[in-house]
Design a protein around this nucleic acid. Structure first.
Lengths: 356, 356
DNA sequence: CAGACTCCCGGAAACGTTTACAGCAGACAG
DNA sequence: CTGTCTGCTGTAAACGTTTCCGGGAGTCTG
């Protein structure tokens, strides 16, 4: 090893020592100049020159060890192919960037071990904070969230009184909006294509669907309910299974990817949308507007949730002693062509209903 | 400051010193036990207990400073809303995960300053390596790539002989495949909806389109060419502008998002696809299969490019002295319903053509 | 029973930075 | 001309971990 001691790093790159030696000053002076604080004009010149000559770049890891912060914030989501997370990410990014930090995204692929591993790894000081949007929550998981060494904000439902900052929506009510709308438009054989029931959103949406139908006095026909996962292909396949055994006049879908799958299955089966079957998705992503006909969709305020989560996180990074907070974003319904009531017969009255 | 010196970290969290003191051993022994190397059964027990009692979690930053590696790999793409990057990311992720590392994604939003900033920040040792897929390349940018302190692999075209690992495709030829297919199916008024011409892929695809038409002896009608950006809304708007002034019988689109926009515009304008207008997209993403009718699309092997890029990166991390390598992935065409030739009149001969 | 060998342990250095502190020179006021 | 103040500078400690190295205790072999 021919390199002079303390002069350059293990892999031969220049360090602040290299620069200081070359400029003929101490490492303290070199560091000060490189950080733009203090230094006589002459010193500044010498250090700048030396740094440029050797191509010095600071080692951020070492800096972070000293300063106790990295300037990085992470977002962990299940599936980055789902546009709802893209919208959430964009909202988070703009808040995070405004604070001078950078956002990194990690896709967990829905594997809970993966997500816990990420928590156990990134949270160990690689990032200044994390936003996590888990679709399944185990005890193990929850424990990792609660005693994370860095601030964590959860987007989504959390059991009970977990002491974690949390931004949620009410997807039960959200499903209700869709059902109300379809009932008001005269639909009675309303089907439901859901994601896995062992996920938090899947369970909530199932409950919401059943409650909404009951609220309208409509008896639920179980043949009109199908389950897949939250992606396109599963949504399409589930809809095909449903169509093979029942004849819905409307479909509520647990997210927009599923709704697109349902739309595809319906059109391929020769059904007209919305004339024969109305379709309502959920999450109100850009994808809903990309379809033809455009999809009605229940907005769960993903951008708003992302924005708020980012703000909560930044506040907690600034002051880790804050008590855990919980915020809620209300759902709303965007009606578009896929459930337009125009061509239907007589619109039904909005008062409580007799069964269809 | 009441904390005992060297016992716990600045923010009150336990360190290896805390654990060692509590277990009554040296920090060296504590560290060894915590890393699972060495230690007598008795020591192991004491350290494990102490660690559990104080809730010790190692500081990854400090570990990285010592070990010179972070176990993290970053991917920087322009727009994470573009499904082509999602597919690329999935391919990269599986390779990276197999090596025991974690992948972090950063969306640059197409702002080149953003991307350069990321390079200048993350590359300063926060990650062990980076994969970058820039759509614009400036000199500044290129410089940042070339003398990055950590290994970098570029997915996409790079000017000349830049000494950077590089996986590219040939989108010129890719556009040619689409044109060949449409010409063979009897289309003659072939339009083109492109992204910005000042991007690397935009320029390449424009050149490819012109070359392909010329190769078939078809004179280019400039009214059949429109430009937007690479996203859905722009693709739709561009197609509307195009339809307002010309009557194409086919549209080649510079990516699938644009193609979806074009499809939407065509259907909204009452054109039948593929009977009146055939549509071919590019990137062959899941989105193409999600449409109705399903979109034909030119695959540029995004998953394959991602996989190869990840492998190049891992190799370079293992041995930074490797010479720069360049790999190429060939494009191919997936024909689907949006350009099916079925219902057209007489298919044209495949020999070089007279003008339409 | 002595010597070599193994195993475990603790001290201390190292990773590359920032920064508290003290020293020193020059400027200025009295 | 002397004393104080200001502004730079360098030494060294600190961030929290891993790991080299030397020493001590125990075990096995000859």
């Amino acid at each position: 090893m021919g390199r002079k001691r303390l002069q350059e790093s293990a892999d031969g790159r220049p360090t602040v020592h290299t620069v200081a030696a070359r400029a003929g000053v101490s490492i303290a002076s070199a560091s000060r100049v490189l950080n733009g604080v203090g230094g006589s004009p002459e010193t500044v010149r010498k250090v700048r020159e030396a740094a440029a000559e050797v191509g010095y770049v600071p080692n951020a890891i070492a800096r972070s060890l000293q300063s106790q912060r990295t300037g990085l914030v992470a977002l962990a989501v299940e599936d980055i192919g789902n546009p709802v997370y893209v919208e959430m990410m964009r909202a988070i990014e703009s808040v995070v960037a405004a604070s001078g930090r950078q956002l990194l995204v990690h896709a967990t692929g829905g594997q809970i071990a993966n997500e816990t591993a990420l928590l156990r790894r990134l949270a160990h000081r690689y990032v200044d904070g994390m936003i996590v949007s888990p679709i399944r929550v185990t005890d193990d998981h929850l424990a990792a969230l609660v005693d994370s060494p860095v601030p964590v904000v959860v987007v989504g439902q959390l059991p009970g009184d977990a002491p974690v900052d949390n931004v949620r929506t009410d997807s039960r009510t959200g499903v209700g909006l869709a059902v109300d709308h379809l009932v008001a438009a005269g639909r009675r054989r309303i089907g439901f294509v859901n994601g896995p029931l062992d996920t938090v959103p899947g369970a909530a949406r199932d409950a919401g669907f059943r409650a909404a139908l009951a609220g309208h006095g409509i008896a639920l026909d179980e043949r009109l309910v199908e389950v897949g996962d939250f992606r396109y292909a599963a949504g399409r396949a589930a809809t095909e299974r449903l169509l093979a055994r029942a004849e819905p006049d409307a479909l509520v879908c647990a997210n927009d990817l599923i709704a697109v799958g349902a739309l595809h299955a319906l059109l391929a089966a020769g059904r007209r949308v919305p004339e024969d079957v109305a379709v309502v998705g959920m999450d109100d992503t850009e994808l809903a507007r990309m379809m033809f006909p455009q999809l009605s969709s229940v907005s769960l305020g993903s951008a708003e949730r992302g924005r708020r989560a980012a703000e909560l996180l930044l506040q907690r990074i600034a002051d880790p002693t804050l008590p855990p907070r919980r915020e809620q974003v209300a759902p709303s319904l965007a009606v578009r062509a896929s459930s337009a009531a125009a061509s239907l017969p007589a619109p039904a009255p909005r008062t409580p209903e007799v069964t269809a």
